[in-house]
């Protein structure tokens, strides 16, 4: 059985912070094409504040995710702060009691995170939002799990579904959010939220696989 400890899992949050910091400009550039152009700036602000807080209060995966969630919810405005805040909060709560995390625990945490976003957003798959990355990624993970695949294989499946899902927003017309103002003209540009979500899920998959190999 492939598992990693909650304690070692804090490295996933460290890597997430790096990934968002590295993609700050990229995310803002995409957002600038059909939105406000501030997605990268806001995400970077939140994840960088989290870095400072984690340096003062290091912990395990769930406690680190909890700190990240709190900062995104309380300090970052707009819609993305609360959406990602709820997302990471749900993962933190789901994993709180787990000393070791395997395919089952991670699956339950991802499911809880997707449910948490659905509870505050009315967006659906196809509306050109982060859900176009998130929902197919969770479905692929759960399918691999149901088929008896390994944790590594499930993470791989999730990662590729996330990339495909994000790419699918390229050819969509925005239905919600500020980009919906552009109608047909929003076609041909990927959604900024779907892209940051793809980066987050890719990073979670890659870092978790690394932990499983150690």
């Amino acid at each position: 059985m492939e598992k990693f400890t909650n304690k070692a899992g804090s490295a996933i949050v460290d890597q997430l912070i790096l990934a968002i910091q590295e993609n700050k400009q990229y995310l803002s550039d995409i957002d600038g094409l059909i939105g406000d152009g501030d997605h990268g700036i806001n995400m970077n602000k939140g994840f960088t504040l989290c870095r400072a807080e984690l340096d003062k209060n290091p912990g395990n995966l769930s406690s680190s995710m909890n700190i990240l969630a709190k900062i995104l919810m309380m300090k970052i405005g707009g819609s993305m702060g609360p959406l990602y805040g709820k997302f990471f909060k749900a993962i933190a709560v789901a994993l709180e009691e787990e000393e070791e995390i395997g395919i089952k625990e991670m699956g339950a945490a991802l499911k809880a995170a997707v449910d948490a976003i659905a509870s505050i957003s009315s967006a659906k798959v196809g509306d050109k939002t982060l859900l176009d990355t998130l929902i197919p990624a969770l479905t692929a993970y759960e399918k691999a799990q149901a088929e008896g695949k390994s944790f590594t294989e499930a993470l791989e499946a999730m990662k590729f579904a996330a990339i495909e899902g994000c790419d699918s927003t390229l050819d969509m017309v925005a239905k919600v959010g500020r980009a919906s103002r552009l109608g047909e003209r929003s076609r041909g540009v990927p959604d900024a939220g779907a892209t940051s979500c793809r980066i987050i899920l890719e990073t979670v998959a890659d870092k978790t696989k690394e932990l499983l190999n150690n």
Binding site: M74, K75, I76, G77, G78, G81, P82
Partner: peptide
């Protein structure tokens, strides 16, 4: 007071 055309975070409303 949020950024231009962007909702203030929960902390500000609090």
């Amino acid at each position: 007071c949020g950024e231009l055309f962007s909702s203030p975070p929960a902390q500000m409303f609090y």
